[in-house]
Design a protein around this nucleic acid. Structure first.
Lengths: 334, 334
DNA sequence: CTGTTAGCGCCTTCAG
DNA sequence: CTGAAGGCGCTAACAG
């Protein structure tokens, strides 16, 4: 408060330059026809007075904020951070700001965020790995002018999407297939909690069955997508089911927690127990043994989502979907 | 654009409720004396019409955005993300939004960001580990209404700070002392690039000298604060100076890069080479061997910075400084 | 307890 | 090529 000297306004500049506000405005936007002399002169005054337009005033009349919202469940997870980096970088170049909102894996919080962002009048929203059911999510995003979802499908009229081509749980099936082919027989699975998890597990078991891979409901657990939860859940699984010779984790953080748990229980990876993660965060390749996981070009997912959003913000409401591959990176943990 | 139906305005609500706009405004803010009947009635209309105030309009007159800016050099580094999480959480509870800006280790970008944030009229800014020299940084933040710096000192009238109590480079000295006490003789140091790095190194060498620890300018290098740079720089250092029996890295990411480099060169950690990082990111404890590093309560640094900023936003311009400890966590890499 | 008046800083529209 | 008038949605200040 103290240090902020009054900023010059359009009117100030106009007065100083001896022209009307409109002329100044036109110079700024480069619209309309203006004589070179006037333009030059106005530019100098703007420079001199360090004039910069007031965003709130502009927003009030244009209805545009040049700000977008980015909603993710956990900004502490490198997976989301790298996506965010892509988004931020892209929008920065386009002159947009990014409002960050972290739901902290809390669906109520995510709801509140989506409403808040509406008030803030963001020009658009990128929703990453939403933890909300369709019933909750769709009405909320329907109110936003432009929406892109990452890792989630959307009715075409509501927004564009960046997802895998396959249904949820498909990765786990791929992973199980690979594990089975490399000789594993009793495959555990730590699924990530979501409002639609059970569907996930059903399809997993069905697929395994059809591949003639042994299944056992007790081998499957569900946990929050963070390291600690992965550690805790894997500990229980390993303790309760020493027969397991492989574990598939919902993401790398959980897999890394599981890796620690395995070590604690004296299980050698990959000899006694194979381990597969997801997302390929930096840590996955640095840990010993290096983690087998799914490739994920997070930065590009971010810029792609951003591009799709900008297109919608620009008024082109064509539905677009961008698919990334589900490809296993085989490392030392399997 | 398509789906956004016209939002109700204050005037709409007032008309519908048969009262003046001021009355509605008062109900919303809970200010002024209003009869219970009127209040109740207006509340119902607001509910019914789903009225929510337009932030831009409010900002235009109050000069407040209820948004703060968070500037960090690399949101991909877990160190900053955890600080950010603290900041975000704190401000969310206070009804503020956080505008995220990532300078990507680029000083020019950081400058541009600080100016942009001014236009956006954020109520305050948290600047994390600024890569700008005082000459560049101070004028830029002087224009902001409220500022808090993390890992950086500020003239008292410009903003509050959250830092270590000690001069930059002190950690490296602590680390060197410990290494020397545990028998290491030839200690390398990978310093992080900053506009004021040389000062850093000078003091490091002076201190080592006074502690009678061997020094050698060729054992010291400087690099960007990321994994890859750490890997590259450590590779050169190890290749060029096989005599080194310890390396101190500016942060964990760099140390982890160095760890990988050491393995590549067949140096066993900690037997052949001791390694110390900084910041204690999750990865540091999960890697094998677990990394000796400096404790850092990042989340709390975030909430503390946020608290100090809110105080300033509230008009209390008292200078505050919060200090965190420089404490070594001894793990397996030393 | 409630309403009126006057902008905040900018852009859109319509005249010159 | 340039300007004047009006209003975006809200709140502060002052009347009643």
């Amino acid at each position: 408060m103290a240090h902020k000297q009054q900023r010059a306004t359009l009117a100030d500049v106009a007065r100083e330059a001896g022209v009307s506000m409109m002329t100044v405005s036109r110079v700024i936007h480069g619209t309309g026809r203006i004589s070179d002399d006037t333009r030059q002169h106005v530019r100098e005054i703007i420079e001199k007075m360090e004039y910069r337009p007031n965003r709130a005033a502009r927003t009030l009349v244009t209805k545009r904020t040049f700000t977008i919202g980015f909603v993710a469940p956990d900004i502490t997870n490198p997976y989301f951070t790298e996506i965010l980096q892509g988004v931020e970088e892209f929008f920065w170049r386009e002159g947009y700001n990014v409002l960050l909102a972290n739901s902290n894996e809390n669906p109520d919080r995510e709801k509140a965020i989506l409403e808040q962002l509406e008030d803030t009048m963001v020009d658009g929203v990128i929703v990453c790995s939403s933890r909300l059911s369709d019933d909750e999510l769709l009405p909320l995003i329907a109110k936003h002018a432009a929406v892109v979802a990452v890792n989630r499908n959307l009715p075409q009229h509501l927004g564009s999407v960046v997802t895998t081509r396959h249904p949820r749980g498909y990765r786990a099936v791929l992973a199980a297939k690979y594990l089975h082919e490399t000789g594993r027989q009793r495959i555990g699975y730590i699924n990530l909690v979501r409002s639609i998890s059970s569907v996930n597990l059903d399809m997993f078991m069905r697929e395994l069955q059809s591949l003639e891979i042994p299944i056992n409901p007790n081998w499957y657990a569900t946990c929050q997508p963070n390291w600690q939860a992965g550690y805790d859940t894997a500990s229980q699984l390993i303790a309760g089911h020493p027969e397991l010779d492989a574990i598939i984790a919902g993401n790398d953080l959980v897999a890394l927690g599981a890796m620690r748990a395995a070590k604690q229980y004296g299980r050698h990876i990959p000899d006694d127990l194979a381990l597969i993660g997801g997302d390929d965060i930096l840590m996955a390749s640095q840990v010993t043994p290096a983690l087998t996981t799914f490739r994920s070009d997070k930065y590009n997912i971010g810029t792609t989502a951003a591009k799709l959003l900008l297109q919608r913000i620009g008024g082109d409401m064509t539905y677009c979907e961008h698919h990334y591959q589900d490809e296993l990176i085989i490392r030392e943990s399997t």
